[in-house]
Computed example of a mutant assay.
Amino acid sequence: MSKHAASGRRRAETTAAPLRPRTAARSTAAPSAGRRRAEPVRRPLGGSAQKFAITAAASGLVLTVALPTTAAAVDPVLPPEATAAPAPVSADPNATLEFDRAALTSKFDPDAKLQGLTVAGTDVTPAAAKGTLATPLDSELVETSSFGYRVSPITGTAGELHTGQDFAATCGTEVTAAASGTVKSAGWHPYGGGNRVVIDHGNGVETTYNHLSAISVSVGDELERGHLVGASGTTGASTGCHLHFEVMVNGTHVDPLGWL
Protein backbone atom coordinates (compact mmCIF):
# COMPACT_ATOMS: atom_id res chain seq x y z
CA MET A 1 0.00 0.00 0.00
CA SER A 2 1.29 3.45 -0.80
CA LYS A 3 2.03 6.05 1.83
CA HIS A 4 -0.64 8.38 0.51
CA ALA A 5 -3.36 5.75 0.57
CA ALA A 6 -2.64 4.85 4.15
CA SER A 7 -2.65 8.44 5.16
CA GLY A 8 -6.04 9.04 3.51
CA ARG A 9 -7.56 6.01 5.26
CA ARG A 10 -6.43 7.27 8.65
CA ARG A 11 -7.94 10.66 8.02
CA ALA A 12 -11.33 9.11 7.08
CA GLU A 13 -11.34 7.08 10.29
CA THR A 14 -10.53 10.06 12.46
CA THR A 15 -13.07 12.44 10.88
CA ALA A 16 -16.12 10.09 10.89
CA ALA A 17 -18.48 11.08 13.73
CA PRO A 18 -19.59 8.27 16.01
CA LEU A 19 -23.31 7.23 15.80
CA ARG A 20 -25.44 8.27 18.79
CA PRO A 21 -28.36 6.14 19.91
CA ARG A 22 -31.95 7.52 19.77
CA THR A 23 -33.12 8.54 23.17
CA ALA A 24 -36.43 9.71 24.59
CA ALA A 25 -34.94 13.17 24.94
CA ARG A 26 -34.02 13.18 21.30
CA SER A 27 -37.43 11.97 20.17
CA THR A 28 -39.15 14.75 22.10
CA ALA A 29 -36.74 17.46 20.99
CA ALA A 30 -37.94 20.18 18.67
CA PRO A 31 -37.75 19.15 15.03
CA SER A 32 -35.13 20.65 12.83
CA ALA A 33 -35.96 23.55 10.66
CA GLY A 34 -35.80 21.39 7.55
CA ARG A 35 -38.51 18.89 8.67
CA ARG A 36 -42.21 19.49 9.68
CA ARG A 37 -44.04 17.14 11.92
CA ALA A 38 -47.59 16.06 10.99
CA GLU A 39 -50.16 17.90 13.08
CA PRO A 40 -52.86 15.72 14.75
CA VAL A 41 -56.35 16.03 13.27
CA ARG A 42 -58.64 17.87 15.67
CA ARG A 43 -62.39 17.24 15.35
CA PRO A 44 -64.96 19.46 17.02
CA LEU A 45 -66.87 17.85 19.92
CA GLY A 46 -70.47 18.46 20.89
CA GLY A 47 -72.33 21.72 20.85
CA SER A 48 -75.86 23.02 21.19
CA ALA A 49 -77.99 21.48 18.40
CA GLN A 50 -74.79 20.65 16.41
CA LYS A 51 -74.52 17.89 13.81
CA PHE A 52 -71.46 16.24 12.40
CA ALA A 53 -71.37 15.44 8.74
CA ILE A 54 -69.03 12.98 7.14
CA THR A 55 -68.88 13.41 3.42
CA ALA A 56 -67.29 10.94 1.07
CA ALA A 57 -67.04 11.10 -2.69
CA ALA A 58 -67.18 7.80 -4.51
CA SER A 59 -67.98 7.20 -8.15
CA GLY A 60 -69.31 10.71 -8.54
CA LEU A 61 -71.78 10.27 -5.59
CA VAL A 62 -71.64 12.21 -2.37
CA LEU A 63 -72.64 10.34 0.81
CA THR A 64 -73.47 12.40 3.87
CA VAL A 65 -73.98 10.81 7.27
CA ALA A 66 -75.56 12.93 9.98
CA LEU A 67 -74.75 12.02 13.55
CA PRO A 68 -77.30 12.92 16.25
CA THR A 69 -76.33 15.50 18.76
CA THR A 70 -76.26 14.83 22.47
CA ALA A 71 -77.34 18.34 23.33
CA ALA A 72 -80.28 18.51 25.75
CA ALA A 73 -83.63 19.79 24.52
CA VAL A 74 -84.58 23.22 25.72
CA ASP A 75 -88.16 23.88 26.79
CA PRO A 76 -89.78 26.60 24.74
CA VAL A 77 -90.55 29.81 26.49
CA LEU A 78 -94.34 30.32 26.50
CA PRO A 79 -95.91 33.76 26.66
CA PRO A 80 -97.56 34.63 29.99
CA GLU A 81 -101.07 34.46 28.51
CA ALA A 82 -100.51 30.84 27.48
CA THR A 83 -99.87 29.73 31.09
CA ALA A 84 -102.57 31.84 32.71
CA ALA A 85 -105.59 30.04 34.28
CA PRO A 86 -108.70 29.99 32.04
CA ALA A 87 -111.45 32.39 32.85
CA PRO A 88 -114.48 30.84 34.63
CA VAL A 89 -117.50 30.05 32.44
CA SER A 90 -120.93 30.96 33.70
CA ALA A 91 -124.42 30.32 32.33
CA ASP A 92 -127.88 31.62 32.97
CA PRO A 93 -129.37 29.41 35.74
CA ASN A 94 -132.77 29.76 34.10
CA ALA A 95 -131.58 28.57 30.70
CA THR A 96 -133.15 25.42 29.25
CA LEU A 97 -130.75 22.73 28.11
CA GLU A 98 -131.81 20.27 25.44
CA PHE A 99 -130.00 17.14 24.32
CA ASP A 100 -130.67 15.18 21.16
CA ARG A 101 -130.86 11.45 21.67
CA ALA A 102 -129.66 8.95 19.12
CA ALA A 103 -132.37 7.46 16.95
CA LEU A 104 -132.03 4.13 18.76
CA THR A 105 -134.89 3.14 21.04
CA SER A 106 -135.95 -0.05 22.73
CA LYS A 107 -139.31 -1.12 24.08
CA PHE A 108 -139.76 -3.89 26.58
CA ASP A 109 -142.36 -6.39 25.37
CA PRO A 110 -143.43 -8.47 28.38
CA ASP A 111 -145.69 -10.71 26.28
CA ALA A 112 -142.81 -11.56 23.94
CA LYS A 113 -140.57 -12.29 26.93
CA LEU A 114 -143.26 -14.48 28.48
CA GLN A 115 -143.66 -16.47 25.28
CA GLY A 116 -139.90 -16.82 24.96
CA LEU A 117 -139.42 -18.42 28.37
CA THR A 118 -138.24 -22.02 28.32
CA VAL A 119 -140.38 -23.54 31.01
CA ALA A 120 -139.18 -26.74 32.65
CA GLY A 121 -141.27 -27.54 35.71
CA THR A 122 -140.71 -24.86 38.35
CA ASP A 123 -137.11 -24.14 37.33
CA VAL A 124 -137.91 -20.71 35.88
CA THR A 125 -135.87 -18.27 37.95
CA PRO A 126 -137.34 -14.95 39.14
CA ALA A 127 -134.57 -13.15 37.24
CA ALA A 128 -135.84 -14.69 33.97
CA ALA A 129 -139.54 -14.26 34.76
CA LYS A 130 -139.47 -10.86 36.45
CA GLY A 131 -141.73 -8.32 34.74
CA THR A 132 -143.38 -10.78 32.38
CA LEU A 133 -146.75 -10.42 34.15
CA ALA A 134 -148.65 -7.21 34.85
CA THR A 135 -150.27 -6.46 38.17
CA PRO A 136 -153.87 -7.72 38.22
CA LEU A 137 -155.18 -4.58 39.95
CA ASP A 138 -155.13 -1.05 38.60
CA SER A 139 -154.77 0.34 42.11
CA GLU A 140 -151.57 0.20 44.14
CA LEU A 141 -150.86 -3.33 45.27
CA VAL A 142 -151.01 -3.90 49.03
CA GLU A 143 -149.63 -7.32 49.91
CA THR A 144 -151.38 -9.07 52.75
CA SER A 145 -150.75 -12.83 52.88
CA SER A 146 -147.71 -14.07 50.97
CA PHE A 147 -147.05 -17.26 49.02
CA GLY A 148 -145.81 -20.14 51.17
CA TYR A 149 -146.66 -22.12 54.26
CA ARG A 150 -148.80 -20.47 56.94
CA VAL A 151 -151.41 -21.03 59.61
CA SER A 152 -154.82 -21.26 57.91
CA PRO A 153 -156.95 -18.21 58.82
CA ILE A 154 -160.06 -20.36 58.49
CA THR A 155 -159.18 -23.69 60.13
CA GLY A 156 -156.20 -22.59 62.24
CA THR A 157 -154.17 -25.48 60.86
CA ALA A 158 -150.40 -24.86 60.79
CA GLY A 159 -148.29 -25.73 57.77
CA GLU A 160 -150.93 -25.01 55.15
CA LEU A 161 -149.50 -24.04 51.75
CA HIS A 162 -150.86 -20.71 50.65
CA THR A 163 -150.75 -21.20 46.89
CA GLY A 164 -150.90 -17.56 45.84
CA GLN A 165 -150.39 -13.94 46.83
CA ASP A 166 -153.20 -11.99 48.51
CA PHE A 167 -153.71 -8.30 47.68
CA ALA A 168 -155.98 -6.03 49.67
CA ALA A 169 -158.89 -4.73 47.57
CA THR A 170 -162.37 -3.53 48.40
CA CYS A 171 -165.14 -5.62 46.94
CA GLY A 172 -165.98 -4.58 43.40
CA THR A 173 -162.43 -3.48 42.46
CA GLU A 174 -161.65 -4.23 38.81
CA VAL A 175 -159.41 -7.26 38.23
CA THR A 176 -157.50 -7.45 34.93
CA ALA A 177 -155.55 -10.10 33.01
CA ALA A 178 -151.85 -10.22 33.91
CA ALA A 179 -150.92 -11.14 30.31
CA SER A 180 -152.54 -12.08 27.02
CA GLY A 181 -153.95 -15.59 26.80
CA THR A 182 -156.98 -17.81 26.57
CA VAL A 183 -159.60 -18.26 29.29
CA LYS A 184 -159.30 -21.87 30.44
CA SER A 185 -162.01 -21.82 33.09
CA ALA A 186 -164.47 -19.26 34.47
CA GLY A 187 -166.94 -20.14 37.26
CA TRP A 188 -167.27 -21.59 40.69
CA HIS A 189 -164.25 -23.32 42.18
CA PRO A 190 -165.23 -26.14 44.59
CA TYR A 191 -161.94 -26.07 46.53
CA GLY A 192 -162.20 -22.67 48.17
CA GLY A 193 -161.49 -20.32 45.27
CA GLY A 194 -165.10 -19.13 45.00
CA ASN A 195 -165.75 -17.37 41.71
CA ARG A 196 -162.52 -18.13 39.84
CA VAL A 197 -160.98 -17.41 36.42
CA VAL A 198 -157.98 -19.31 34.97
CA ILE A 199 -156.05 -17.90 31.97
CA ASP A 200 -153.64 -20.00 29.91
CA HIS A 201 -150.69 -17.89 28.67
CA GLY A 202 -148.87 -20.67 26.81
CA ASN A 203 -145.59 -22.42 27.55
CA GLY A 204 -147.23 -24.03 30.58
CA VAL A 205 -147.82 -20.69 32.35
CA GLU A 206 -151.28 -20.04 33.87
CA THR A 207 -152.69 -17.36 36.18
CA THR A 208 -155.77 -17.63 38.40
CA TYR A 209 -158.03 -14.93 39.92
CA ASN A 210 -159.97 -16.05 43.00
CA HIS A 211 -162.79 -14.94 45.35
CA LEU A 212 -164.30 -12.70 42.65
CA SER A 213 -167.63 -11.01 43.25
CA ALA A 214 -168.28 -11.00 39.48
CA ILE A 215 -166.84 -12.65 36.35
CA SER A 216 -166.77 -10.81 33.00
CA VAL A 217 -165.19 -13.46 30.70
CA SER A 218 -166.08 -16.88 29.35
CA VAL A 219 -164.15 -20.05 28.59
CA GLY A 220 -162.34 -19.79 25.24
CA ASP A 221 -162.14 -15.98 25.21
CA GLU A 222 -158.88 -14.59 23.82
CA LEU A 223 -157.72 -11.82 26.14
CA GLU A 224 -155.12 -9.11 25.84
CA ARG A 225 -152.96 -7.97 28.72
CA GLY A 226 -155.04 -5.69 30.95
CA HIS A 227 -158.40 -7.05 29.75
CA LEU A 228 -161.16 -6.91 32.40
CA VAL A 229 -161.59 -10.29 34.05
CA GLY A 230 -164.04 -9.49 36.85
CA ALA A 231 -164.34 -7.75 40.22
CA SER A 232 -162.72 -8.57 43.54
CA GLY A 233 -164.85 -10.10 46.30
CA THR A 234 -164.89 -12.54 49.19
CA THR A 235 -166.56 -15.64 47.72
CA GLY A 236 -165.38 -19.13 48.64
CA ALA A 237 -162.92 -19.76 51.51
CA SER A 238 -162.33 -16.09 52.29
CA THR A 239 -162.36 -13.95 55.42
CA GLY A 240 -162.83 -10.60 53.67
CA CYS A 241 -162.67 -8.69 50.37
CA HIS A 242 -159.36 -9.26 48.59
CA LEU A 243 -157.84 -10.82 45.48
CA HIS A 244 -156.09 -14.16 45.71
CA PHE A 245 -153.76 -14.24 42.68
CA GLU A 246 -151.89 -17.39 41.59
CA VAL A 247 -149.21 -18.29 39.04
CA MET A 248 -148.80 -21.91 37.94
CA VAL A 249 -146.00 -23.36 35.82
CA ASN A 250 -146.80 -26.76 34.34
CA GLY A 251 -149.45 -27.25 37.04
CA THR A 252 -147.18 -26.29 39.96
CA HIS A 253 -147.83 -23.15 42.01
CA VAL A 254 -144.95 -20.66 42.21
CA ASP A 255 -144.50 -17.33 43.98
CA PRO A 256 -146.35 -14.69 41.90
CA LEU A 257 -144.07 -11.88 43.12
CA GLY A 258 -141.25 -13.38 41.06
CA TRP A 259 -143.27 -12.71 37.89
CA LEU A 260 -144.76 -9.26 38.52
Rank of each mutant, 00 (worst) to 15 (best):
G258S: 11
P21L: 05
F108V: 12
A49I: 04
M248Q: 13
P86L: 13
G258P: 09
R101L: 12
G148V: 08
L114V: 00
A231M: 07
E13H: 10
D75E: 11
S106A: 15
V247Y: 01
L45K: 13
P80E: 06
D100P: 08
G8F: 14
A49C: 03
H189R: 14
G131C: 02
T157M: 04
A16F: 09
R101G: 05
N94Q: 11
G181W: 08
T155F: 08
V41E: 04
T70Y: 09
Q115G: 13
T118M: 07
G251A: 06
T135Q: 15
W259V: 01
A29R: 14
T70P: 09
A120W: 03
A25I: 06
V89A: 13
A85D: 06
L212A: 00
C241H: 03
L61R: 15
R10Y: 14
A120P: 00
E246C: 07
G233W: 03
G148F: 02
L114E: 05
A177E: 09
D75T: 08
T15E: 12
R225W: 14
R11P: 01
L223H: 05
V77M: 13
N203D: 09
R196D: 07
D109V: 02
T70C: 01
P40E: 01
V41A: 15
F147C: 05
T15N: 15
F147K: 12
L141A: 15
G192D: 08
A12S: 11
A168Y: 09
E206S: 01
P21M: 01
Y191C: 00
S90L: 10
D75H: 03
H211Y: 10
E160S: 12
G204R: 10
N94C: 02
T173Q: 08
H162A: 04
A128L: 10
K130E: 09
P44Y: 10
I215A: 06
H253W: 07
N250T: 09
L137E: 04
S2L: 02
E98R: 12
A6R: 15
L114H: 08
P256G: 05
E140N: 08
A177D: 04
L161I: 11
N250F: 00
K51A: 11
G220K: 02
T252L: 11
V217D: 01
K184A: 10
D111H: 05
G131S: 06
T69L: 01
L260F: 14
E160N: 11
L67K: 12
A129N: 07
L243H: 06
V254H: 03
P88T: 00
S48E: 14
G46Y: 07
A73C: 03
H244V: 01
L63K: 15
T105M: 07
S139Q: 13
S238C: 01
E98M: 15
L45T: 03
R10F: 04
M248C: 01
Y149A: 06
P93Q: 03
K51S: 10
G172N: 02
L97H: 04
F245Y: 07
S185P: 12
A112L: 11
